[in-house]
Design a protein around this nucleic acid. Sequence first.
DNA 1: CGGTATCCGAGATGATACTG
DNA 2: CAGTATCATCTCGGATACCG
Lengths: 116, 116
Amino acid sequence: MARRHQDYACGEGCPVEAALEIIGAKWKGGIVYHLLAGETRFSELGRRMPNVTARILAKALRELEADGVIARTVYPTIPPQVGYRLTEEGERLRPAILELHRWGSRPRGVFDIAAE
Amino acid sequence: MARRHQDYACGEGCPVEAALEIIGAKWKGGIVYHLLAGETRFSELGRRMPNVTARILAKALRELEADGVIARTVYPTIPPQVGYRLTEEGERLRPAILELHRWGSRPRGVFDIAAE
DNA sequence: CGGTATCCGAGATGATACTG
DNA sequence: CAGTATCATCTCGGATACCG
C-alpha cells in the first residue's frame, strides 16, 4: 500500500501494479468510485459502504490522500464536517474506475453464483 | 479473493470492489496485463515478473483461472509446456487494464519518489 | 518445465470503546 | 460528526526445499 513504483518498465514496477497498489486495496476502489460523484462527507461514505468500519475507512482515506488521489477539507462547523473529493490526479482515474465498474457489473454466468 | 459479489448496488457488492477482488491482488494486474499480448508460458510470465516466486505466481494463476479470467493449456511436450491466455471474460478487462496502465505510467511528481 | 509442500512473519482488516 | 486507541485475528505474500 505504501510502496510506490520505482521504474515504469513492466517487471518490478509495472504501471498496472503501481496503479493497483494505490487503488487495489480493499474499499479503495469503492471510495474512489463514490467520489466520482463529487465531494462527499465521511459519514456519507460510511453510509454508502456499510461494511467498512470507521477505522478502516479513515485509514484508507488517509492513504489515498497521501497518494495524491483525494483531498480532505475540514469545515469548522458545529458539528464538524469533513469532505473528501478527488484531486486532479484522482479525477484522471475516472475512466479506469468506470471500466472496472462496467466489468464488475456485467452479469456473470450462473457458475459464480452457484459456486458460492 | 474468493468472495464474489452478491448484489450490484454499491455498498457491500460494489461492482468496482467486485472487480478489484478478482484482479486487485498483488501481481494479478500484471499477469492480466502481460496476457493482453497473447498466450504466454509460465516461465515467460516468471521472466517478465522477476519479483514473484513460482508459488505465488502459480497461486495467482489458479485463482484467475477459477474466476474465469484466464485459461490454462497444457502441451504434453518434452519438456512440458503450459500456456496461459485470457478468456473472453478476461479479454473484456482490456480497457480497464489499459486505463490502469495509462494512469500508472504517467510521470508522477517528484514527491512520491522523494517520499520513499 | 511447471509446478507443490511446509513453514513463517508482516501487515491488512476488524470489533470495540472512547474523544475533541 | 469525524475520527483515534487498543487489541485480536487472519489472510496474503514470501523463503525454501522438493517433485513428476
